[in-house]
Design a protein around this nucleic acid. Structure first.
Lengths: 205, 205
DNA sequence: ATTAATTAATTAAACGCTTGTTTAATTCAA
DNA sequence: TTGAATTAAACAAGCGTTTAATTAATTAAT
């Protein structure tokens, strides 16, 4: 075992993703992580601070790489959008449990400060996408569409597929044993769909 | 006061929508509804049965009217899609608190049976949309696109805007006092965006 | 290198509080 | 007078957290 704090955080993500923050007790977590109940408070102080640490810890690892894309001069607007879709789907599928935890917090809005810090952490991505689209509109490559809601569509489509597994399976007409998020074919299918959608919506005909 | 059960259910939706199911105590609810704590259990038995009753009660009222649209012979495919977007946005914006409660339950997947019953209740809408799109594809009105994921985009866009208010406000560059869901201009904006998006994606050029 | 001192990690137990729920007594309505 | 509605109080269980004692690991001194 490398770092016990990380070990606890990882187990917390697993449990929070399934049962939610309030739905997961410290005793549940301690049992799952195979540590004494008091260790959680020993390392993190309180349950809420554990959550903060969890956000802090994992938000850092999944940041970056979109800003460079914005500056890139060699790619066209639609090529950049394609790359963004790649990165986004790949990232959110890989860290989908962490993503669920974050989105649950965003939706329930349990604590003002935490929600704000999540928004702060996630929002630069939206800014990057906006810049790319607006630049391409000025360059006459893209149509003049509703940029903000187009971003909502981009992210909303992925969220719709990722957040509610039961509904997703029903939509795909698959049995309860099929886990689409582990299926690279499905990942490709999502990428292809959003790419086509954005081409249709953004590019001039 | 007409019916005390309904009164409690309505208050429960308000509180669950903001603080979530686990985050709302029966004492909180009793205080908000201005009834004795024991009344909740008296009327509903347990907290979980209250939730079941809540779903049952409100799911019925928001059903119907999409099936007729499917059968309609006078409207074209894209006209039907336009109508669906109208109905959906209108319905979800109006009952957005109840919608939040349902979506939270879908995401957290707290109880197998309840999640399934929600899926059962919500899914006919997806079926209706699918039928309309598939028919229009056969009629050569629509392109051959990924029907299932297109539905995910349709619903996902609305959810993205509805579920996380803080993120939505940030995206729209509005202050914390602005409540977009009460603004008819914003509702129209969402409808216009999704309509344009679906036209671009579905119609042949 | 070994021992002593100091700090960190771990534990079981308990604390106080909140939770959902039930009881038993009382009020109200038919 | 009978049954439903309402109440304050109590219940047991679970919660997050703290305590105090013990073990492990690290550092300092001999």
């Amino acid at each position: 075992m490398i770092d016990k704090r990380d070990h606890i955080i990882n187990k917390a993500i697993e449990l929070f993703a399934v049962k939610g923050f309030e739905g997961t007790s410290i005793r549940d977590l301690a049992a799952a992580a195979d540590v004494n109940v008091a260790m959680v408070n020993y390392y993190f102080g309180t349950k809420e601070k554990l959550f903060d640490a969890l956000i802090e810890r994992k938000a850092v690892t999944s940041r970056g790489s979109l800003e460079e894309l914005v500056k890139d001069k060699t790619l066209s607007g639609i090529e950049k959008i394609d790359r963004i879709i790649d990165i986004y789907v790949e990232r959110l599928f890989t860290h989908r449990q962490f993503h669920r935890v974050i989105q649950q917090e965003l939706i329930t809005d349990r604590r003002e400060t935490l929600t704000q810090s999540i928004v702060q952490a996630v929002f630069p991505n939206a800014i990057a996408i906006r810049t790319i689209i607006e630049t391409a509109i000025k360059n006459n490559e893209f149509k003049k569409i509703d940029v903000q809601l187009t971003i909502a569509t981009l992210i909303g489509t992925i969220n719709q597929v990722l957040l509610s597994q039961k509904y997703c399976l029903k939509l795909l007409e698959k049995g309860p044993d099929y886990i689409p998020y582990d299926d690279p074919k499905f990942k490709k299918r999502v990428i292809d769909h959003i790419r086509q959608l954005m081409r249709d919506h953004l590019l001039k005909k």
